[in-house]
């Protein structure tokens, strides 16, 4: 199982967050990436935490920053990629994998196929921020800024077009070892196609390893030396 780290990025700055509601600035993206390179994390996920309408200016600031990024660790990027021109703007960037959320929740086949043409299917990740409400699995639809029921149809679409599916435990994002493994029992996605994040800590990684999950992504607590990747591995 791979063990990676995630960084939230917005308007050119990176953040540590708790439940995607409280943000704590972490400063410069390149500095954060340099630290993760040094720790030799297996992969880095850079996510723009977009709620509702995204600003083109904000996306452009973040893409410019990405284009200047220097790293020798595999990078995945997502957040606010919603149009074919956004996909075109990603070409040449130092990213190996593209993370899409609204496109999968909207079952937007044409858009996802366009992304596959540009990046290859092996590079496409579906991102599903989920939570359990009254025993029903709900997914956060970022474009609409609302929680909706995670239907079988959405899951089937993800399985058809995404190489792996990132499952974010929305309620526990930023907390140590609080990821609810029970959430996975409500999904119809094989564990070897799942990347978990949101409350991932050492104990969760130990459990995830034993279940055959593809990857665990630790939120950016891994930037602190006392929580370096060796400790988590």
């Amino acid at each position: 199982m791979r063990v990676g780290a995630s960084i939230l990025l917005k308007n050119g700055y990176c953040y540590q967050s708790y439940g995607w509601n409280r943000f704590r600035p972490l400063g410069d993206l390149q500095t954060a990436i340099d630290i993760l390179d040094e720790y030799e994390v297996d992969e880095i996920l850079i996510v723009r935490p977009i709620k509702g309408v995204d600003s083109e200016d904000s996306l452009n600031i973040d893409l410019k920053l990405l284009s200047e990024l220097k790293t020798i660790t595999p990078l995945s990027f997502g957040g606010g990629i919603r149009s074919n021109s956004d996909i075109n703007n990603l070409s040449g960037l130092p990213i190996e994998r593209l993370c899409l959320s609204s496109a999968f929740i909207n079952i937007n086949e044409g858009f996802v196929k366009n992304a596959i043409n540009s990046f290859g299917r092996q590079a496409i990740l579906a991102c599903l921020p989920i939570t359990l409400i009254d025993d029903v699995i709900c997914v956060y639809h970022s474009e609409a800024n609302e929680l909706i029921k995670l239907s079988d149809e959405i899951q089937e679409f993800c399985m058809q077009y995404a190489d792996e599916i990132i499952i974010i435990d929305m309620s526990n994002e930023g907390n140590n070892d609080y990821f609810q493994m029970d959430l996975l029992e409500h999904l119809k996605i094989p564990l070897n196609k799942i990347i978990i994040t949101g409350g991932v800590g050492k104990n969760i990684i130990r459990v995830a390893k034993s279940t055959g999950i593809a990857s665990s992504i630790i939120e950016n607590r891994v930037l602190h030396s006392e929580n370096s990747i060796d400790y988590f591995k």
Binding site: S67, L69, N88, G92, L93, P94, I95
Partner: peptide, 13 residues
């Protein structure tokens, strides 16, 4: 460079 591929990653290394 045909508009596909992570050109920047290669340039960086």
């Amino acid at each position: 460079d045909v508009g596909c591929g992570n050109i920047q990653s290669l340039t960086n290394i």
